[in-house]
Amino acid sequence: MSSPTPKFSYAPLYDHEFFELLYADQVDPWSVLTSSYERDKYEATLRCLGQSRYRHALELGCSIGGLTRLLAERCDAVTAIDTSAIALQRARELCHCTNVRFMQAHLPDGDWNGSYDLVVLSEILYYFSVPALVRLADQLSRVVSKRTEFVVVHWTGETDYPLTGDRATELFQCLMRAELRHRERHSQYRLEVWTGVQKE
Results as ranks from 00 to 15, higher is better:
1 M>R: 03
1 M>P: 06
1 M>L: 09
5 T>E: 15
5 T>F: 14
6 P>M: 06
7 K>M: 15
8 F>D: 15
9 S>C: 14
12 P>R: 03
13 L>Y: 14
17 E>W: 11
17 E>T: 14
18 F>R: 14
18 F>K: 13
19 F>H: 08
19 F>C: 09
20 E>W: 00
21 L>P: 00
21 L>F: 05
21 L>T: 07
24 A>D: 11
25 D>R: 15
25 D>V: 10
26 Q>I: 13
28 D>L: 11
28 D>Q: 10
30 W>I: 06
30 W>F: 11
31 S>M: 09
31 S>P: 03
33 L>Y: 12
34 T>L: 02
35 S>V: 05
37 Y>W: 01
45 T>F: 08
45 T>C: 15
47 R>E: 10
47 R>C: 06
49 L>P: 14
49 L>W: 07
49 L>K: 12
49 L>S: 12
52 S>M: 15
52 S>F: 12
53 R>P: 14
55 R>F: 12
55 R>A: 14
58 L>H: 01
63 S>N: 14
64 I>R: 09
64 I>M: 13
65 G>Y: 06
66 G>I: 04
70 L>K: 10
70 L>F: 08
71 L>N: 12
72 A>L: 10
73 E>V: 15
75 C>M: 10
76 D>C: 12
76 D>Y: 11
77 A>L: 13
77 A>G: 06
77 A>D: 06
79 T>S: 07
79 T>H: 05
82 D>M: 05
83 T>I: 10
84 S>G: 02
84 S>M: 04
85 A>D: 12
85 A>I: 11
87 A>L: 10
87 A>P: 11
88 L>T: 09
89 Q>D: 14
91 A>F: 07
91 A>E: 07
92 R>P: 08
93 E>T: 05
95 C>G: 08
96 H>T: 12
96 H>S: 13
97 C>Y: 09
100 V>I: 14
100 V>G: 11
101 R>S: 14
103 M>T: 09
106 H>K: 15
106 H>N: 15
108 P>H: 04
108 P>V: 07
109 D>W: 08
110 G>R: 04
112 W>P: 04
112 W>F: 13
114 G>N: 03
114 G>V: 01
117 D>Q: 06
118 L>Y: 05
120 V>K: 04
121 L>S: 03
121 L>T: 03
121 L>R: 02
122 S>C: 15
123 E>M: 05
125 L>D: 09
125 L>E: 08
126 Y>N: 00
126 Y>H: 01
128 F>A: 08
129 S>E: 14
131 P>D: 00
134 V>Y: 07
136 L>A: 03
136 L>S: 01
137 A>S: 03
138 D>H: 14
152 V>K: 04
152 V>W: 01
154 H>R: 03
154 H>S: 05
154 H>W: 02
157 G>F: 00
158 E>Y: 02
158 E>F: 04
160 D>F: 10
164 T>H: 00
164 T>Y: 01
168 A>G: 01
169 T>F: 04
170 E>D: 14
171 L>P: 03
172 F>E: 02
174 C>M: 07
176 M>D: 09
176 M>Q: 10
177 R>Q: 12
177 R>W: 02
178 A>E: 03
180 L>I: 03
183 R>L: 13
183 R>Y: 07
183 R>S: 11
185 R>N: 11
185 R>D: 12
186 H>G: 00
190 R>P: 00
191 L>M: 02
191 L>G: 01
192 E>S: 07
194 W>I: 07
198 Q>V: 15
199 K>N: 15
199 K>D: 11
